[in-house]
Nucleic acid binder design. Sequence first.
DNA 1: TTGAAAGCGCTAACAA
DNA 2: TTGTTAGCGCTTTCAA
Lengths: 342, 342
Amino acid sequence: MADVAERAGVSTSTVSRTLRGLSTVSPEVRARVEQAARELDFAVSRHAASLVTGRTRNVAVLVPTLSSWFMGTALSGLARVLRAAGMELTVYVIPGMAERTAFFEHLPARRNADALLVFSFDLTDEETARLDDLAMPVVYVSQHVDGRPSVYVDDVAGALHGTRHLLNLGHRRIAYVRTEGACGFSFSSQERLVGYRQALAEAGLPLDDDLVVATPAGDKRGAAEAVGRLLGLREPPTAVFAEQDEVAVAVIWTLRATRIEVPGQMSVVGFDDQPVAQWFDLTTVAQSPSRIGQEAGELALSLIDDPGAERERHLVLPTHVIPRTTTAPPPAPRAEPQLPPD
Amino acid sequence: MADVAERAGVSTSTVSRTLRGLSTVSPEVRARVEQAARELDFAVSRHAASLVTGRTRNVAVLVPTLSSWFMGTALSGLARVLRAAGMELTVYVIPGMAERTAFFEHLPARRNADALLVFSFDLTDEETARLDDLAMPVVYVSQHVDGRPSVYVDDVAGALHGTRHLLNLGHRRIAYVRTEGACGFSFSSQERLVGYRQALAEAGLPLDDDLVVATPAGDKRGAAEAVGRLLGLREPPTAVFAEQDEVAVAVIWTLRATRIEVPGQMSVVGFDDQPVAQWFDLTTVAQSPSRIGQEAGELALSLIDDPGAERERHLVLPTHVIPRTTTAPPPAPRAEPQLPPD
DNA sequence: TTGAAAGCGCTAACAA
DNA sequence: TTGTTAGCGCTTTCAA
């Protein structure tokens, strides 16, 4: 910066003021400084700047992975609003327990970011408490933490509507396939199951635990086992509500391999509306991670500007059912022996 | 840090030495300092540290998007090696031309990162030159830039082997479906087409431009048009090599909707081995973005430590064909009128 | 093995 | 409107 100042024949303060766009610089001087900065390819050191301002112009995110549709899409949405605000994005990827422990022990984001967005973790109270004394706004995404700003999709309503869609088609035996082992995502998982149960209760149907099975996400083998359990029931389901599209697709795969027609003999509903849902023409509950990322980013920015505001703001985003071709009315019941035809 | 020093009854220099793991600290003092740091939840300000060391312990990446399988997986691999090295990861998402121009104009990474990884862009010479005087190592990923460190998959060989697989099955009319409009990814795109042509040339087959069609990635409609053009040829293909799995899936979708059997009447090969390839049981050329990310990260770290080394290192990663159920020998040719049977 | 002091590159308060 | 000066929180000589 001293170089720029010298070349423009001004002091470093003036260079600083010019480069930050402060209005207290005369046009001629501004022009000279900008010219000099361009010629010298000068870029302000954010480090030096934040040392004195205390603001880093950097937002940190904590994510379990980068390689999922949800995370990729959400972070793209977030990145857009941060870029527009001139903020940078630092990503902490915490795939397992060891890394998680290390992160919470050292909290490396401390003093190195202006805000932290925590995605899709099911935090312990202790971990939440650690984040509380981080001295920066923390926004919880895809989870709700009481008394802290959170952005999430209405999983309960989504599952409720998806299940209702099946009920409205006439299904009475509806299974729920949840994911297991997807530690960190268990939050949405719980909520969706609640919505499913709520729909059944509404319809006056009993909750049959045999109809709730689990499988690791995206695993053909596990899905086959889960479907196998359902098909082996005394009274098997005529429809399946899957916690995620990937699970729905695995279920459909298994059913088709067994020559069980979808939706002829079994209807399937997913949750997400990932690209794969289109390829399978899957009826699904759509959510918009990109919107989630965007809203979370905007909330974080507003908290940075005014740490008092919206401290307890919960933003609940909507979902909507997209009917496609994997749902239909249940097959006609088999002739029931005890009732003579006509 | 002053607080920690006071609490431990030492100078800030000693705290600094302790926290950086320097060996010139006596065990008792080290214990006291670590204790104090823990009690005060102290984390070093990277900003202040880098101001004096000149190293930021931060690696920047430039990516066109975060919401693709390739990027998500590659960045996960990269994040792993960076975390192990105690480096942080800053992501610049540059989805369009406007953002790209802005990035290259200001080069915000300058002085704010120790290295830059540029993913999947087809850079102009001018842009490359800009990056050259960034005063930090720049690693090019998924592209080769002469004389600069690059990490990429052997797209030519991949497409060559994929096409050969079709040739070996007996196919002679093989179409190539490329993506268009996916600006920034055009590099791999070109290379794969080269591999395809090479395979045909090897087999002594003519290059028929009618067999090369384009479609926007992941677009059902566009794929239908492209497939339509192929099916309308005087001599339609019996197999399709698709530049990416997503395109292959769209092609299969269209074919099946038209009651053209895959692989009975048309074989299809993809490139990537994304999860969707499994769901479609797609024969494909597999690459490992996670490995790419990892290697790129390691290369960047080594360049940071020793800017002289490996300055021109090109790391070319292998691919392999995964045969699944979308490829088979071509259908028996129709009876040819001019030859009497037997 | 430890401490004192200088200074990294910037911004902010104050003076001019 | 501009310049001078102090100091942000560290690391790094250099001296002890």
